Simulated assay, not measured.
Amino acid sequence: MTAQRRPVVLLRPVPGTSVIHRLWAGTKLIVVFVVSLLLSFYPGWIAIGLMALLVIVALRLAHISRGVVPSLPRWLWILLLFGALTAAMGGGDPVLQLWSQEIAVGGLLKFLRFTALSIVLLVLGAMVSWTTNVADVAPAITTLGRPLKWLRIPVDDWAVALALALRAFPMLLDEFRLLYAARRLRPRPLAPDGTARRRRLADLVDMLAAGVTVALRRADEMGDAITARGGTGQISAAPSRPRRLDWIALGIVGTLCVIAIVMEVKGFSGR
């Protein structure tokens, strides 16, 4: 019996409470932005290692179990192996001396560094979605973007649009999964190859039409619910501001970023 695959669960907070759960949503957004900016300008091993350590500690503090992590498909491992092999063939410094052979591993190291950087950013974003209530995102964005209102930028409208998109994404994903499961339960009629190919194309069009219909129906229901609760202004009007715990978290992240930048500038990154 094969083990059951764990699906991707995003934009739904993990039940429970922890230090990470109690952080302000704006703090988590700032951390994601700062870490992404740091790794974009200083993608060295030291910076990646420090940010990976930060993510691991945050996962432990948030009590994220292994069951939350989705199962990786086999084709992804094959794709990573193929990428590593092709990158290794590119050569480049440094060169390892293995007995009488010289092996250039520069390309492989660059691929591994890029893969590690991508994993850190993906896990960081996933952790934010696992520990943040979607309803807290819009007020946090409104608070963070308050200085932009002086430039007559519609921050509140942007926050409402983002909040509605985040709320609708898991709902629509479940609807599409239900449609796909219902489509697979339908019997497949026997037909010649050409007819079967045209039938598959017609089924794809039917699935897209059904998906659009479901999305419009859900949008209408969500619009009625928002109107009954006082309009879209209530989504971003909730009080939202950082607390003492958030300043401590931002100070820790800022300190790690400064350490990473200093070590990268001084040349201790090992690149």
Rank of each mutant, 00 (worst) to 15 (best):
I252R: 00
L144W: 07
E175K: 10
A238P: 03
L166S: 06
A3C: 01
A237W: 04
G49A: 13
S18D: 11
R152G: 00
R241K: 15
A88R: 08
I259K: 00
Q101M: 15
A237F: 06
I259Q: 12
V14Y: 07
D93S: 10
A62I: 02
W45K: 05
L53R: 01
T115H: 06
T232W: 12
A88D: 02
D136Y: 07
A138S: 10
A88M: 10
A191S: 12
T132V: 11
Q97A: 06
R188N: 12
S100Y: 10
A3Q: 12
R22F: 01
G26M: 08
W247H: 04
V8Y: 03
L50K: 05
L98R: 11
T2H: 04
V57H: 00
I261E: 02
A159Q: 09
V120H: 00
V128F: 09
A238Y: 05
R183S: 13
L204G: 14
M207D: 13
R218E: 13
L245R: 12
V68Y: 10
V128M: 05
V31H: 00
L245H: 00
W45I: 08
D203Q: 15
W247M: 13
D193P: 04
G106E: 13
T142R: 08
M171G: 04
L96G: 14
W99L: 09
E221I: 00
I46P: 00
D246S: 06
R271L: 04
A202E: 12
L216W: 03
D156Y: 03
R271T: 07
P70S: 07
L37P: 05
V160I: 13
R229A: 08
S129R: 10
